[in-house]
Design a protein around this nucleic acid. Structure first.
Lengths: 191, 191
DNA sequence: GCTGTTTGCCTAAAGGCTTTAGGCTCAGGC
DNA sequence: GCCTGAGCCTAAAGCCTTTAGGCAAACAGC
């Protein structure tokens, strides 16, 4: 037993994210984290305000990682290419890191959210839409639609909501993206 | 204090649903429920297997209520009318009963899910699509798309994800439904 | 109306997670 | 080499879950 375990908010957050992917975000507990660092529970409270604070940090980490991946994917792509790439970033991330993805949905208070990477996400979706001809306010509507589809599809799929049925979800995913592309190219005018 | 409080799995489930709407689904606790019935905690365990069982029952109740509303809304409607009506059922339910709506997302084990009202939901969305000309497998793709948009939009909106931005969410919602209607009427053929 | 059984709620108790308060000690600066 | 402070620990209280076993109210049948 080293006299000092070398705890850090940083390290705790990363370990928390890993833990989330292993056992689920809502099973992430200060106690379990302490166990993993072979340290007493109370020791964590010098680095993290409380359980909620820990979860917030994990959420921010996940949002950041997701935004980084999105930025990478979007670089050098446009139009449908970009659409598919961005969509897959979300889906793949959720599959590889279910706990982190769940964390990214953690409800943050407005200030924290504003300071985090949430804004980058919105900006990137807007950038993606540059490939389609949409003026405001339709662009905002489209941003929200895309966000809804991506998040909705991924979360239902991961919850097993599409199981037990015939066409496999990969095929649906691909056809849904085709459909969204078509829709964005011929967005219906306001009534 | 009446010698018997008249507890029932039924009553506990309803009270649990109410509690969920008041304090959030994940704050629903056997202890709090006992407090509300002015009864000792252990007493609830004769009616409900455990905390998870309680939550499952609440989830099934919510799914059932939601399916009932959907059936009502769909009766006598077709095409875009039906689409809008169904979509609003989900959104309105989530707004009126946030806790129940969260409960409806509670992950159920496959058998429980199969026995619950989840199936009715899928059937109704399929029925709605009868107003559009879609053959399999496109119909299934469309069912999944609609489910994703409804759930995704509602859950992001309720999480505050669309706040701080210009066009209000009612307008976006309406334009999104217009767009979905247009999309379903001219669903792109498989490549 | 009385008795016997079932059913419903209670007491008791153990185990886990969270959070705060206060103490000891190792590490690095002077 | 000392001393100050940061880092981890012990202690303790509060709340939630879950199980085991007990007492008494409600109900059946005589």
């Amino acid at each position: 037993m080293a006299p000092r375990a070398g705890l850090t908010a940083e390290r705790l957050t990363r370990a928390g994210a890993t833990l989330a992917d292993e056992v689920g975000f809502d099973q992430v507990t200060v106690s379990e984290l302490a166990r993993r660092f072979d340290v007493k529970v109370a020791s964590l409270y010098s680095h993290v305000r409380n359980s909620h604070d820990l979860k917030t940090r994990i959420a921010l980490l996940a949002l950041e990682e997701l935004a980084d991946r999105a930025a990478d994917a979007l670089a050098g792509r446009a139009g449908k290419d970009a659409l598919v790439a961005l969509a897959n970033v979300y889906r793949d991330y959720a599959r590889e890191h279910p706990g982190r993805y769940a964390a990214a949905q953690f409800r943050l208070d407005p200030e924290t959210a504003a300071a985090g990477a949430g804004v980058r996400h919105a900006k990137m979706t807007r950038a993606l839409l540059r490939g389609y001809e949409l003026d405001e306010p339709d662009q905002t509507h489209a941003v929200r639609l895309l966000g809804s589809v991506f998040h909705g599809y991924v979360s239902i799929e991961m919850g097993g909501g599409f199981s037990h049925s015939a066409p496999d979800t990969d095929e649906t995913w691909s056809r849904v993206l085709d459909a969204l592309d078509a829709l964005l190219r011929s967005w219906p005018p306001a009534p």
